[in-house]
C-alpha cells in the first residue's frame, strides 16, 4: 500500500513540476496544486497507512493509527487552499492589467 501511495505521490510531483514549467498562468497554478497534493499524500504515507484502531484514547487499545500526520495534512491543505485561491485572483488581475497570460512576456526587462 505504501509503495502505491509513493508512486502516486511521485507522479503528482512530476506532473506538477512539468506544469509549473509551462508559460500559461493557469497551467502553472494547476502545477502548484498538483505538487501540494503530492506533498500531502507524502505526509500521510510517512505516518504509515494502516496501523489499526482510530487514534482515540481508550483502554486496551495499543495499536492505533498515528494522529499527527493527519493533523499536519489538515493544516497544510487549508494553507495551500488559501494560497491557491489568492493566486488565482492575482493571476486574473495580472492578466487584466498586463493583457497577457504568457510568462515569457512578463519578464520585465525594461526596468520600470
Amino acid at each position: 500500500m505504501e509503495i502505491i501511495m509513493i508512486v502516486l505521490a511521485s507522479i503528482l510531483f512530476t506532473t506538477g513540476v512539468y506544469n509549473l514549467l509551462q508559460k500559461q498562468f493557469l497551467r502553472i497554478i494547476i502545477g502548484t496544486a498538483l505538487i501540494s497534493h503530492g506533498a500531502h499524500l507524502f505526509i500521510l504515507t510517512m505516518g504509515k497507512l494502516k496501523r489499526g484502531a482510530p487514534p482515540v484514547e481508550d483502554y486496551g487499545v495499543s495499536n492505533y493509527a498515528d494522529p499527527l500526520p493527519q493533523a499536519l495534512i489538515l493544516t497544510s491543505i487549508v494553507i495551500s487552499f488559501g494560497v491557491t485561491s489568492f493566486l488565482l485572483v492575482l493571476a486574473y488581475r495580472t492578466y487584466k492589467l498586463n493583457n497577457t497570460d504568457n510568462m515569457e512576456k512578463l519578464r520585465g526587462l525594461n526596468n520600470e
Binding site: L20, F25, I28, T32, I35, S36, G38, A39, I79, S80, V83, F86, L87, L90, A91, R93, T94, L97, N98, L106, G108
Partner: peptide, 17 residues
Amino acid sequence: LRESLKYVLVNLFSSML
C-alpha cells in the same frame, strides 16, 4: 502585479518542498 505573481509562485513552491 507581474512581480508579485513570481514572488508568490517561488514561495509557494518552496513551501511545498
